[in-house]
Write a protein that binds this DNA or RNA. Structure first.
Lengths: 182, 182
DNA sequence: GGTCGGCTAGACCAATCGGTCTAGTGCAAA
DNA sequence: TTTGCACTAGACCGATTGGTCTAGCCGACC
């Protein structure tokens, strides 16, 4: 579960991303976190002066960067918007199976934090970033600006909802079926 | 926030549903719960021998029953499936605004509990119940069985994803826009 | 009137929570 | 070699956690 080659800060971020995703922000104690990351408490508060909440923000950002890469990879070789979106659904289905059927890493981390406005603002920022990324590809693939916006929001909504249902069912099938709802 | 007329058990369930929805299962302590419900600890463990986890299941069930009523009310007077689904979107948008922009009560309660299989199985059961309810109305309104299944799953996915985005944005607009994605 | 059981009431508990603080390590620049 | 700083290490803290347990209230039935 741990990667001894990585620097402490990165190990903390990745452990946090993983644990928050599976058990939620409040469901993870510092003890679990530090054990998983093989780091002492002092290191946590050195790298993240505000402790758990700072770490949660960093973990969500890190997870979001990964998602942005998946979106880019899905659309980069695509000929049409539908092709790209379909590839994205398949990639996420595979990711879902590999991850052990966890929740959306952003929602599980940022939707229940103590410092509500800061967490929620960050979630909004991250989600808007995903939609914007899809939108860029939509525009590049020939959609009008208005169409690009509408369709990228729809892709986000479908994926978010599909992921939730997939988690409840322990099956990635619905994620692949999303391609028929584009 | 509390309804002194209601019996203790119901007050506990409704307080739990409300608090779990806003802060998540682990984000709510028994102390908050009991204060909000104006009940002593003894009553909790009398009505729910397994404590917090039993209460969470009951609260999710109660919230789900409300959702089933909203679905039924939306489709009952509808002439077409699209009409019913559109009404549902509007009703949920209004509910979202009234609720103070909370999360889906099922996801926030059941997706991070300690006893993972029991909680997740219950979430699946509830979600499948919602989809089944929509499906019944779809069939009644003339859709073929296969179409009814596909469209009811789609409605669920859209609502679930839309709700998440609405929460991040603190705006119910996207929920109303879902009608264009049906 | 007595008693029995559903329910309330909250003191109490060990365990765990997030966070602070001091001491020490090890590398890099002077 | 010495100094300084980024970082590690974990003991320690008060507060809070979920849960147990005993005592007693109070209305219903005998």
């Amino acid at each position: 579960m741990t990667k001894p080659a990585l620097p402490t800060k990165d190990r903390l971020i990745q452990s946090a991303a993983h644990l928050f995703r599976t058990r939620g922000y409040h469901g993870v104690g510092l003890a679990d976190l530090l054990t998983d990351a093989k780091a002492p408490k002092g290191s946590l508060y050195h790298h993240f002066p505000n402790g758990k909440s700072d770490l949660a923000i960093a973990a969500a950002t890190w997870a979001s960067d990964g998602m942005l890469r998946v979106i880019a990879a899905s659309f980069d070789g695509a000929d049409t918007f539908e092709d790209g979106a379909t590839t994205l659904c398949y990639k996420l289905a595979k990711l879902f199976d590999l991850s052990g059927w966890d929740t959306c890493p952003i929602a599980s981390t940022l939707f229940e934090g103590p410092d509500n406005t800061r967490f929620r603002d960050h979630a909004k920022h991250i989600y808007d970033g995903w939609i914007a990324e899809v939108q860029v590809h939509a525009a590049r693939l020939g959609l009008s600006e208005e169409e690009a916006q509408r369709k990228s929001e729809r892709v986000f909504v479908l994926i978010q909802g599909g992921w939730t249902l997939a988690r409840a069912r322990h099956s990635s099938e619905i994620l692949r079926d999303l391609r028929h709802m584009l």
